[in-house]
């Protein structure tokens, strides 16, 4: 969250086999965001590692009114950083471990 002001975490334990993850995103540093947003609300959503893209989820969050268009890049980056980390961890651990 240090550079986007947003934090994305796993909302449920990753079982390393399912391509769909439950993620949770919230604003940790409101000063880093440009547009209007809700400060103390966490948004939980599912993300499919094989079919979804961070940009698409960010766009839907903007469309749903959670964030302003000017912050969609920061939202997408936060999701992408977390997804990249999860993929790296999965590569290290065999499925179902």
């Amino acid at each position: 969250a240090e550079d986007t002001g947003l934090r994305v975490e796993l909302a449920e334990e990753d079982d390393y086999s399912n391509s769909s993850l439950a993620l949770r995103l919230w604003v940790e540093d409101p000063k880093k965001l440009k547009g209007k947003h809700k400060d103390n609300e966490a948004i939980e959503f599912s993300f499919n590692l094989e079919t979804d893209t961070p940009e698409e989820v960010a766009y839907e969050m903007v469309k749903s009114g959670f964030f302003h268009e000017s912050d969609s890049k920061a939202v997408a980056k936060s999701i992408r950083d977390r997804v990249t980390l999860i993929k790296k961890i999965r590569e290290k651990k065999p499925a179902g471990c």
Partner: peptide, 27 residues
Amino acid sequence: SSLTQVVHSAGRRFIVSPVPESRLRES
């Protein structure tokens, strides 16, 4: 719970709930 709101967008479901006090960093 009444504090949780579900929003659908393009077939995706967003569940909105308050961030636990413990997770909010002093801003």
